[in-house]
Write a protein that binds this DNA or RNA. Structure first.
Lengths: 189, 189
DNA sequence: ACCTGAACACCGTTCAAGT
DNA sequence: ACCTGAACACCGTTCAAGT
């Protein structure tokens, strides 16, 4: 309920920004300028306020980073949802890493300056994979198979994004090789 | 050649620290207090000088982080050297991650505040794995097989260190399962 | 030559004062 | 209620001055 301002007698100023706008600005800054470029001042400028105003919506920069991580995991989960094909799921997983490399790195390897996202969201993002792994490896080995496949995919994309694959060799070919061999290895015998 | 100080007429003060001591202090601080706790001031205190003195041996904090990453990769390469058994190599790789989790994370996922280590060192750490992969998968698939195995191992340990494996299930069991299936999958057909 | 205190720029965060 | 300038603590880094 909007009330008259006691000093001016006019209505209070309408909000000049929102939590969603702040998170969106933070995500953009992260991709454009890296974690070091994601300052409270830069976020504030981008949403059109001064840095202190951000603290009306977010308690700290750390918490903002966590919200960025959660938004990233949510988006990733949506991309993976409605796929029961492990090969296609892995392809989308990798594509998302290419689309948002900085956020992807932050989510896959927190601790190095970035906080962990909520565990429920991590679980949500991996749920489709576990389903597919169960179909492939059987219920008994579903969890271990999902972990094997997830570890490989996550490690592969992380190495790729970090320049971990030196020169030489076709990276796409290594991806296809890995998918093929892993699917074969995890299939129920 | 030590010369007489022109002002005091005495010998110059002997060095109170060294680059090696600075890197060692930085590595310890990284494990104890995380990346945020690895400040120039904290490093200086630990080696017994004031922060500005560090700049006589290291040009910047970023460069110091890079030296820490390189020392970590070198140590890891030494641990893996002289193993042509992929299972034993993977076991040592994982054990090193448990031994120095913060440095391991920094090396496996740089960019998130940490700079990349030299490419030669990355290559050195992966050389024994490529050798073992060649013996297993054959020369033709040696590189792709090494990448598959390395991506899995690196992804597995990273997830483990970052709490990426939610609750439930035996992580050691998932490791053994992954090793066994991967070795089988990568073996020449 | 190495070391230091002082100083500067920058960043996260708080707070009193504006509207 | 939201917003702001001013201020504070902290950190990386530079520099002139000591020895």
């Amino acid at each position: 309920m909007a009330t008259v301002n006691s000093y001016t007698g006019r209505m209070p100023t309408p909000d000049r920004t929102s939590l969603d706008a702040i998170i969106a600005a933070a995500r953009d800054l992260l991709e454009e300028n890296g974690l070091a470029g994601l300052t409270m001042s830069a976020v504030a400028t981008r949403v059109g306020v001064r840095a202190p105003s951000l603290y009306k919506r977010v308690p700290s920069r750390d918490r903002l980073l966590q919200l960025v991580a959660e938004a990233t995991l949510l988006e990733l989960a949506q991309r993976l949802d409605a796929t029961d094909d492990l090969v296609e799921g892995a392809r989308r997983f990798r594509a998302y890493g290419h689309e948002r490399p900085a956020a992807f790195r932050m989510v896959m390897a927190p601790g190095a300056g970035a906080p962990l996202a909520g565990l429920e969201l991590r679980a949500a993002a991996s749920a489709p994979i576990i389903r597919a792994a169960a179909a492939l490896a059987g219920e008994k080995h579903a969890l271990a198979a999902a972990r094997t496949f997830t570890a490989w995919a996550s490690g592969f994309v992380s190495m790729e994004l970090n320049g971990g694959f030196g020169l030489g060799g076709d990276v796409d070919e290594a991806w296809d090789f890995g998918v093929e061999r892993l699917i074969a290895a995890l299939s129920a015998r």
